[in-house]
Design a protein around this nucleic acid. Structure first.
Lengths: 232, 232
DNA sequence: CCGGATCCGAATCGATACTG
DNA sequence: CAGTATCGATTCGGATCCGG
């Protein structure tokens, strides 16, 4: 198996050997949201072949990144080890780095609960959040629904649909202050390319319930600069 | 080419599509040290097939990560765009993350000038460096030789050998205060597994010139924790 | 349904040779 | 120096199948 090796004694090389195979980092991304069953992962990564998923999970376990845990109530989940959780800041940084190059969504592109959760974590600005009142949103993108609670510099996200209450997840009680629905165009709100008002105007986004002015706060709290530096 | 797509509209996915192919991030790692010619890259990545190198360079250019520049004195180099330079902190973090899992070097593993340069940047602790006197080292690992200058929180590294003065690089003048030579075992000094004294004892490292006590300062300035958290 | 294993054609990668 | 061309070895993708 020396053919898989890059032949260098270097930390970056080792890291890439551990999580650089196709699909591996996307599995890690989803596991950063919480422990997941094999089937959850398959659904969250609709285009992954099942043999690749099982191969990657094996490799990630051998690398000490992921572990397989039998649940008390007879189930089986994969979760990140503490070492694997060390990738969190890296995956968030990669999401921020990739954001400006996302372009327009391909017709086939989907938005999953886990990917949207991580995207919001990526875009979250704690300094801004700490300086505005707490807020409680329900965000719909495609058929994904998230409950997003901002309380000071803290962010909590729960998946409402589709369908299953996440393993070990506790659903928030009470009513969100703002419910809104969008498509992939929500990215242009996050980037500041569209103001919330413009987004509503162009039907990129629609308020279902609550005070639309809360959208401004949302856009302030979740933001990623998308201008790509072309010059020198 | 939709077969290469992961089918998700997500920043992490986009990032992985840009720099997730085999060898791509190692090319970026080397370019983070400085602009490099095709041949430099090939030497710095001894095991990369040349067709893969040229394919990757094309893809990285299309992705806006790398650009190809004709030099004044008739040459051709690849360099990171400003957008590509945005990967610096990510690559450094990956190097730090991979460090604990490096294990023992395979017999075939090499250490290149660029990989060692990035490894030292990864291990550099500016807070520590700022609190000790400036230092000027010459580090040999295998047949790589680096001039490493620490001045307050600033770090400057130049490659002395092998062989070519790097493109646009200016060699430091004057004498280093300490010259030492090591093998891959230098990693165990960086991790703190061996003290400099122990490293000399076990012939992992040898002082060629200068005051051996400066090694302590080196080990303080360049350090990565290598203990992997196994518990919960 | 859950958690995979198996099979096979298509695409990529790796090694070497070759060229302007 | 800066790549193309070629070709066998691997890996990936898509579909199917199987035991609990």
């Amino acid at each position: 198996m020396a053919s898989r090796s890059y032949g260098q004694y270097c930390g970056v090389t080792t890291a890439v050997e551990l999580i650089g195979e196709r699909w591996a980092l996307l599995i890690v991304r989803d596991l950063l949201v919480g422990p997941r069953r094999y089937t959850d992962l398959k659904q969250g990564l609709p285009k992954i072949p099942t043999n690749i998923l099982s191969t990657r999970l094996k490799e990630l376990q051998e690398g000490g990144v992921v572990r397989r845990v039998a649940l008390a109530n007879c189930g089986l989940v994969y979760e990140l080890t503490p070492y694997g959780r060390g990738l969190e800041s890296i995956v968030l940084a990669l999401g921020r780095w990739g954001f400006p190059q996302m372009g327009e969504p391909a017709p086939e592109d989907v938005v999953t609960g886990d990917s949207l959760t991580m995207a919001l974590r990526t875009a979250f600005r704690p300094e801004v959040a700490a300086s505005v009142p707490p807020a409680d949103y329900e965000v719909h993108v495609g058929d994904v629904a998230l409950r997003v609670q901002v309380d000071g510099a803290e962010l909590r996200i729960a998946q409402l649909a589709p369908p299953a209450p996440p393993v070990g997840g506790r659903l928030p009680t009470g009513q969100p202050e703002l419910v809104f629905a969008a498509g992939p165009g929500i990215r242009r709100v996050i980037s500041g390319e569209l103001t919330p008002a413009e987004a509503i105007d162009r039907e990129v986004l629609a308020v279902v319930a609550g005070d639309p002015s809360l959208l401004e706060r949302f856009a302030d709290t979740f933001h990623i600069e998308a201008t790509v530096d072309v010059a020198a």
